[in-house]
Design a protein around this nucleic acid. Sequence first.
DNA 1: ATAATCTATCGTATATTTACGATGAACGAT
DNA 2: ATCGTTCATCGTAAATATACGATAGATTAT
Lengths: 105, 105
Amino acid sequence: MAVSKKEGFKTEDVWLADIAKSLSHPARIRILKILTEMNVCMCGDLVDLLPLSQSTVSQHLKELKRVGLIQGDIEGPKVCYCINIKALQKAKKELDKLFNQVCAC
Amino acid sequence: MAVSKKEGFKTEDVWLADIAKSLSHPARIRILKILTEMNVCMCGDLVDLLPLSQSTVSQHLKELKRVGLIQGDIEGPKVCYCINIKALQKAKKELDKLFNQVCAC
DNA sequence: ATAATCTATCGTATATTTACGATGAACGAT
DNA sequence: ATCGTTCATCGTAAATATACGATAGATTAT
């Protein structure tokens, strides 16, 4: 089975792994960086900036939306994407918690 | 194709995505936490602490070794795993760079 | 030497991920 | 009303990820 056995793990660890999964593709890293730089961005602009087809970019956006790191607001025929600051801050906090145990040596 | 198209992306983004991928499973998050708490840990101990078979745990350890976040030293018949502090610090630094652009608002 | 222990790897099955083109739904413009 | 634009979703193909048991290799103990 390729299904992660989530039964035996803390929800905290499952959540953090899920966030990490959403960051586990260069396109999604790039999308987050673009959105942080531009604050907001139309989906079409992202398609132009990435070496991927429109449908593939849409899939990556869906993955980032799934974990709540970004949100998309419909503006007429276009969709305006932006960072969900609160979610990103929580992700940063949890990752710091993981890393700082080590770096406090 | 399921292969990530890495041609069109910055090596920096590819690297960070790869680190994130190595963190994208609850078992590997747990392993890192255990190793940071215990400093060092035998592979067998990790198997006891995780709800997974020995071979599966070994696979997860291999993934963390692949990206350099941990290292394993053979001690007789056992293998002693520990965190690679430098790699983890670099990962933290790069992730902060991604997150801080947002949080500096 | 033999047995027991520990861990990595192999083989395998299944689920998920990634990618693309094609299609569909929603909206604005003509 | 029709057309063009924008984006999500569907269908599909191929690679990867996850999990396990079985096996192999190395080391220690007997």
